[in-house]
Design a protein around this nucleic acid. Structure first.
Lengths: 241, 241
DNA sequence: AGCAATTTGTATCAGATTGTCGCATTTCGT
DNA sequence: ACGAAATGCGACAATCTGATACAAATTGCT
C-alpha cells in the first residue's frame, strides 16, 4: 500500500469532482470521489479511512453542513469545506460545525492544495486528529482552565480571572480553533456571529485586552500570536477534560 | 532565438488584445495574439509552443472553458483565464479547475503580469523528492530549535529569538528544503504562495534580515549560502525531533 | 428614571514589518 | 584586469499592528 495521503472529495458537480481528483492526484495524493452524502457514508462504512475530506457545502439532498457534523461525531478526520461565493455565513458555520478550514468558490486549485497541506500538517502535529475541543465543557491550556459551562477562567491555583463577555467569546473562539491562523473577519464572525459588522480593528482591541489577562508577558505574547498581514493564531496545546 | 518567455493572448476584443500585447512586450515577453479558438488551434498546430496562454472566457464561437479543457488534454501549457465579473458562478468554478489562475475583468495589467509571472515560476516546479522533514513539529539545526507549532525559534539555551512572519516563513521554506538550491521564484512561491507578487529581490532582503538573526557572522554566512546566479541554499543538517 | 461603573467600538499615533530603491561590493566571462 | 551582471544591505515609504484615550452603549443599583 502506498504512503500517499488519501483524500476523499465529495461534490455533486461532476466536473469539479473529476478535475479536483485529477489535480490532487497530480500532486501525489490518493483520491477517492463521492457525489453525495449517501456515497460518503457508504465509503466511510467501508472503512476507507481517508486522511482528509474535501466537502462541498451546497449539495442536493443532505448538505455539507450536516454531513460535516456527522463526520465530526462518528469519525476522526479533518474536513475542508467548499462554500459558495458570498455565503459569508456558511463559511463560518462550517468552521463552527467543525470543519478544519474552508475555501470560498471560486478558488484556485493551487490554493485548495495549500489548505489541504496546512490542515494535514495541523492534524499531524496534534495528538488526536481533531483540531480543537468541541464547544462545551472544561478545557485546559497553558496554565489555565477555561470552564465553558460557567463561563469562567481560572489559573492553576483555581484563582478566577474575570473576563468580560467579549473577552470570553474571543478566548472560546481561539480555544476551539487552536494552531491555525484566524483573520479578523473570521474572529468577528466567530465571536459576534452574524451581527453588525463593526470596524475591523475592534478585534485588535479585544485581543489586546485578552492578552493582558492571559499572557504572562503581554508585550511578548506566547499564546496569542500575531500573524502579520494574516490575523491572529492561538498557539497552544489545548486539552479537553 | 530569444530566451524571452513566449505568451499567447487569446481574446476577441481587439483593444484588449493589443493592449495586453504591448504591455507584456514592454515587460520582456514575446507575445503572440489570437482572436478566437480557431486561431488558437491553428497556432498550436503550427507548434509555436508558448510558455503560457492568456485566455478570455467569454468569446463568440468556442468559449474559453472548452478551449481550456482542450488545451489541458492536448498540450502541456499553463493557462491564465480572464473572466468577466459577475458571470455565473458554476462556470467560473469550472474554469478554475482547468486554469492555473484566473483574473476578473476589469483588471489592472500590472496584476495580470503578476499572475503570469507567478504561474510561470510555478510551472518550473520544485524538484521532486523531499529531503527535509515534513512540515509540523520541532526541528533542530545548527544550534537552533525551530518549533513549527508555536512558530518560535529558540537557541540551545531555550532563549527565544523573535522572528517576523516573513522571516519565519522563509526559514520554514529553507528547513523543509535543506541542501538544495532554491531560486528566488521558488522561495517566493514557498513563502508567499499565491498572493501578491512582489519585486523579485524582496527575497534578498528577507534573506539578509534572516541571516542577521540566525547566522553567527552575517557577513560570512554558513547556514544560508548564496549560490551565484542560482539563488540560495540552506546548508545544514536538519533533524526532526 | 437617574447615575455610576463597566464594557466595547472608534480614533489616533507610535512602533514594527516589509517591499522597493539605490549604490557599493562581489562574481563571472572574456 | 576589466566590464557586465548579480548580490548585499542601508535607507525609505507604505502598510500593518499595539496601545492608549475617549465616546457610545450597556448594565447594575437605588
Amino acid at each position: 500500500m502506498s504512503d500517499q495521503p488519501h483524500i476523499l472529495v465529495v461534490d455533486d458537480h461532476r466536473d469539479i469532482r473529476d478535475l479536483l481528483g485529477r489535480y490532487l492526484r497530480q500532486h501525489e495524493y490518493r483520491v477517492s470521489l463521492a457525489s453525495d452524502g449517501r456515497e460518503l457514508r457508504k465509503l466511510m462504512a467501508d472503512d476507507i479511512a481517508p486522511d482528509l475530506i474535501v466537502l462541498d457545502l451546497m449539495m442536493p439532498g443532505e448538505d455539507g453542513l450536516s454531513l460535516c457534523r456527522w463526520l465530526r461525531e462518528n469519525h476522526d478526520v479533518p474536513v475542508v469545506m467548499l462554500t459558495a461565493l458570498g455565503e459569508e455565513t456558511d463559511r463560518i458555520i462550517g468552521l463552527e460545525m467543525g470543519a478544519d478550514d474552508y475555501l470560498a468558490k471560486p478558488f484556485n486549485p493551487r490554493e485548495l492544495l495549500a489548505r489541504v497541506k496546512a490542515v494535514m500538517r495541523r492534524a499531524q502535529s496534534l495528538p488526536v486528529g481533531r483540531k480543537g475541543p468541541l464547544p462545551g465543557g472544561q478545557v485546559h491550556f497553558d496554565r489555565w482552565i477555561l470552564d465553558r459551562t460557567r463561563h469562567e477562567l481560572r489559573d492553576a491555583n483555581d484563582v478566577m480571572v474575570p473576563l468580560s463577555a467579549g473577552e470570553y467569546g474571543l478566548l472560546c473562539a481561539f480555544v476551539e480553533h487552536p494552531n491555525m491562523v484566524l483573520n479578523r473577519d473570521q474572529l468577528l464572525d466567530l465571536t459576534r456571529g452574524r451581527e453588525a459588522i463593526p470596524f475591523d480593528r475592534s478585534i485588535d482591541n479585544q485581543v489586546s485586552r485578552l492578552r493582558k489577562k492571559i499572557e504572562h508577558d503581554a508585550k511578548n505574547p506566547t499564546l496569542i500570536k500575531t500573524v502579520w498581514g494574516g490575523g491572529y493564531m492561538f498557539t497552544c496545546e489545548v486539552a479537553e477534560k
